[in-house]
Design a protein around this nucleic acid. Sequence first.
DNA 1: GCACGGATTTCC
DNA 2: GAAATCCGTGCG
Length: 197
Amino acid sequence: MNPSQRSPFSHRFYADDPLVVAPGLLGALLIHHHPERGLLAGRIVETEAYRGMEDKACHASKGITKRTAPMFGPPGHAYVYLIYGMYEMLNAVTWPEGQPSAVLIRGVEPIAGIERTTNGPGKLTRALGIDRSLNESDLVSGRLIIVPDQIISKDCVETTPRIGVDYAGEWAEKPWRFCVRANPHVSKMPKRRSATV
DNA sequence: GCACGGATTTCC
DNA sequence: GAAATCCGTGCG
């Protein structure tokens, strides 16, 4: 069966804990029906969970603002934001409405229509033509969807601390990054600053 | 209003 | 090691 004809993950799936959804999205297909470029698709191989207002690495820790509002919204919708003035980051909103959390899509393996490398969260959105116009769009019924495909066994899921969130103190230590082990499209780990005691 | 810095990437 | 480059956030 053509994967683009399969049913996407349901809103119920996304209403779960981001620590369940993040590894659960590994092996799934991210499919963008692009208005000009047609079908663009990649297999998700790397994700990170951002979990609630307590999580200092999570944007929602700043409270509900114009920027963070999508994370407080209904699960199964996109949270797309601009970082460093030049890169768009794609997240899937999780947990029920009112409980802010999201799963950042950090790496995909090219499947269809992709003309450039996709490793790294800023590059994959570019390769798939994803930008802020898709912020708050429905990942179950919109032009950007995620559908189940491969099942990744637990043995093949590697967990590490999240990348680029050293400012978050103890929250930066949580092993909330999930990758398909040894997959070449997983972003490379930057050197981390040693923790100050 | 204005300064600051970021869930990144690339180049020196 | 630092620039590129925009805008949300916090503070005045």
